[in-house]
Write a protein that binds this DNA or RNA. Structure first.
Lengths: 343, 343
DNA sequence: CGAGGTAATGTTATCGCTAACAAGATCAGC
DNA sequence: GCTGATCTTGTTAGCGATAACATTACCTCG
């Protein structure tokens, strides 16, 4: 490897002892200043701070991690995808974590199955992360999480509502209810639903909310049209629904599905919102520029991220696991894709 | 904090000495096995591996980092955004890095200005990252990068083509040239361009390629319409262009701009592609479901990520900085938004 | 003014690993 | 069987921080 020489010593970034020597104190005093211990004389504190500034000293995280057994790192496990929801969540979380002084290490997995998740978590454990957040929106992730060692704080986002781990979720049910109600309120007799993939909790919650709203209004529950999160699936579903004259109101489980439906309707000559009303979910940035602008449900990702971090920090500080649950309500964003039925 | 007791010893995750004791060797031999040193007897190696498996031992990264001065972590600095390009790049990079045995720590910044970037890089340096990748598509990032200490391998992605650091870029110029040529080939006399924000290199490269293609065809260069990356800007640009009858071919600097243009055209009764042809850039997953499906340029993000990692590893292994440049060519994806002009 | 307590600082051990060197084992060739 | 090279293993010394304990300085009060 590299040859250690005496001159190397001067190149090397300064360590705590260098600061101590310059300030004329022991390294322990420097450590105390760094960690805001109370029993340090003001004058000493200033002298140490000056020495730190002069040398441009920055503590070695690895050394601290080694001795404390815990780093200032939070691991995030997410499915490797560019889906709008997970991506937004990750960005928001990184932001709030940085503000709290934590770095974020991402460990993406191809599949959210037991083995992949367990491996990703183990990799993070190797790094001695202070906590782990799992973006685990699918059923297969639940079993994986329940089987894990719990000596590190763990929070899952959009995970199994029935899970025992700490959990933060977007209130899918309430969002779907709002979406459905909004269509019913426009005068439609009932609302059709194009759902996401069946193994996602998000899908299940949105289906549940849709059904609740229909039942509460005494409306008939039409057959469920199953999709995934892609515009392609929305397009296929839309081609079918365009041939069903009584399907005048559609709640799509996300905006990309809605986009596909929009195109299918356009191809088949069914106008939106005159002939068919559509509501989406997610409020992707482009939703306002669909044709027509899409009425949709906006989840508050920053709020989810903040709640997740709070739950994590609570566990880190208290030292014991939490199983609290936090639910973040989404809001309805009204645009032009909803109108009263033609009849 | 937690009280250390004797029973604690058994709970604690096993260290190298525990493995050594079980295998009946010294901890150094265990270290040798772990690091694939050649001079270990096969039989010993197996015995050690068995002990590792039996105890479920996993090396402590912090300890290794402390002694070697370098971790198996790569830091990524990116602007905190949900923009399709950066998000895809991050996801792709995380994937290839994991395959190479590296964890990825994200440090997002609000602005890509000097101070923000310098701080983010310093934070990563604290973690003793093995290398840093900066997704630095804007001019303001260049100065910041040039002023940094270079004792840690650094690669920038989509950065200043004139920069001195190692660099991986999507070939914006070639992509824009392809887009423009494709419209000219359809028979349009010239091509209009709605660009991205002026301080992005991506924008500059796409403008350059557009102009090159026009000049090479002897076509007139229409005035540039300046936008940002949003559908909103595309919509505004589209409203204007819809009133310009001779603007029959438009190259939008990304798909979201194209989406906004599409909607403006639709509102103003100009049909795409019959009246106006449009080409985008990025190939977002939904582009195939725009109305009409969008012809666009697809950058190869996984290839960019692989090239970036390769450049980083090369520097890590050789121990000296590189200033090599890698350019990844994008491809044209033909869909329905291009047709010959009406006349 | 000395006892006793608290505040401020220093000393030493330790976290788990790798590097450098030391030492024992093995083997070829004579 | 002995010499010296090579292979294999063990021993020791840090990396740079925190924790626990030891020590000194300072103050209050009877």
């Amino acid at each position: 490897m590299s040859d250690k020489t005496v001159s190397d010593r001067t190149l090397r970034s300064p360590a705590m002892t260098d600061v101590a020597r310059l300030a004329g104190v022991s390294h322990q005093t420097v450590s105390r200043v760094l960690n805001d211990h109370p029993n340090v004389r003001e004058q000493t504190r200033l002298r140490v701070r000056a020495a730190i500034a002069e040398l441009g000293y920055r503590p070695n995280r690895a050394a601290r991690t080694l001795v404390t057994g815990r780093s200032q790192l939070i691991g995030v496990v997410a499915q490797n995808s560019t889906l709008y929801g997970p991506a937004s969540l990750l960005a928001a979380f990184e932001q709030v974590a940085a503000e709290a002084g934590f770095a974020v290490s991402v460990g993406s997995v191809r599949l959210l199955d037991h083995r992949s998740i367990a491996e990703a978590v183990e990799r993070h454990l190797d790094q001695r992360v202070a906590g782990i957040m799992v973006i685990a929106p699918v059923t297969s992730a639940t079993a994986a999480l329940d089987g894990l060692r719990t000596d590190v704080p763990l929070v899952s986002v959009d995970g199994d509502p029935a899970s025992t781990t700490a959990l933060v979720t977007v209130d899918q049910v309430a969002g779907a209810r709002d979406a459905t109600r909004c269509l019913l309120a426009a005068g439609h007799r009932t609302v059709w639903h194009v759902s996401g993939p069946p193994d996602w909790f998000d899908s299940a919650g949105r289906i549940e909310g849709w059904q609740q709203a229909l039942r509460e209004a005494g409306a008939e529950v039409p057959p469920l049209v199953s999709g995934d999160w892609t515009a392609a699936a929305g397009y296929r579903a839309g081609q079918m629904l365009a041939r069903v004259p009584e399907a005048t109101a559609i709640f799509a489980a996300n905006d990309h599905l809605a986009l596909g439906i929009l195109r299918a309707m356009s191809e088949r000559g069914r106008r939106v919102p005159e002939d068919v009303s559509i509501v989406g979910f997610d409020d992707v940035p482009e939703a306002a520029y669909f044709i027509p602008p899409l009425t949709t449900i906006r989840p508050d990702f920053p709020a989810v991220a903040r709640a997740g971090l709070a739950l994590l920090l609570e566990q880190i500080e208290s030292g014991r696991p939490a199983s609290r649950r936090e639910t973040i309500a989404p809001t309805l964003v009204t645009r032009d894709s909803v109108a009263p039925p033609a009849a």
